[in-house]
């Protein structure tokens, strides 16, 4: 790629720009199947798959999503902040709205979403953790699913934190239902919810070591023998991802 674009070359379109942007991302997989032990016979041994840059959706979002974003922007600005300050990026995908919230603003945003009449997300469906091992610097995600019974709407909040500093403020003060959900996410992913009234393990025994749903925690299992052949445990079988 040359620095200067010749004058007769057409302006690169959106897809080309996205492709160039992706070349700057880290390599997440090489070869066709990611095999390490044996040779890759697929003919794609030299393939390098780079991580996709974090997606975002520009305005307009469509459906009721613009209304929600406008109402939230208005309230955040009235409180002296701004939408972009609290929300990193917005993703509209498969008819669902996701707000990626910066962790220091999570509780304030949740409170506005619950209390403001144009938003009125009264019900929280709890927290679900996801461990994106390849997403360096923001490995652990806490995902909140909110429901507005007043307006019959749904909304997803997502907070991402690095593995080295897995702290997310607790929203139990806003949505008491998250009490057990945050304990579960701590138990399974090791995300520390600061301000939780009693952050203890809930599913695993109290003295358990590690956080089992993390991607670097092995599934375990034993090989199964059947008629002389041996089937390896599920986590040692060939994976196609």
């Amino acid at each position: 790629m040359s620095e200067k674009t010749p004058p007769n070359e057409p302006e690169p379109d959106e897809a080309a720009l996205a492709g160039r942007e992706r070349l700057n991302e880290q390599v997440v997989r090489t070869g066709m199947f990611g095999t390490q032990t044996t040779g890759d016979t697929s003919g794609y041994g030299g393939l390098q798959v780079r991580r996709a840059p974090p997606p975002f959706t520009p305005r307009p979002y469509g459906s009721y999503f613009d209304e929600v974003a406008d109402a939230l922007t208005a309230r955040l600005e009235a409180d002296g902040g701004g939408f972009d300050e609290a929300v990193e990026r917005v993703i509209v995908d498969r008819g669902e709205l996701t707000l990626h919230v910066r962790r220091e603003h999570l509780v304030a945003v949740a409170r506005l979403l619950r209390d403001e009449p144009p938003l009125a997300f009264e019900l929280c469906g709890g927290v679900s953790g996801v461990h994106y091992l390849a997403d360096v610097g923001r490995e652990l995600h806490a995902v909140y699913h909110l429901v507005s019974i007043t307006h019959n709407r749904r909304l997803r909040l997502e907070v991402s934190v690095p593995d080295a500093d897995p702290h997310v403020p607790s929203v139990v003060s806003v949505y008491p239902t998250c009490n057990w959900h945050e304990r579960e996410t701590w138990d399974f992913f090791g995300i520390v919810f600061d301000g939780h009234p009693a952050l203890t393990r809930i599913e695993m025994p109290d003295d358990w070591k590690g956080h089992p749903q993390r991607k670097d925690y092995p599934l375990g299992g034993i090989p199964v023998e059947y008629r002389g052949a041996t089937v390896p445990p599920p986590d040692e079988r060939r994976s196609y991802t």
């Binding site: 469906g125 709890g126 008491p176 239902t177 057990w180 994976s239 196609y240 991802t241």
Partner: peptide, 20 residues
Amino acid sequence: DGGTRPYRAHFRDPSFTNLQ
């Protein structure tokens, strides 16, 4: 994650929430 297996499947079970 684009693969042939769920990267994560979480169930928001009503019993879990209601039991609180």
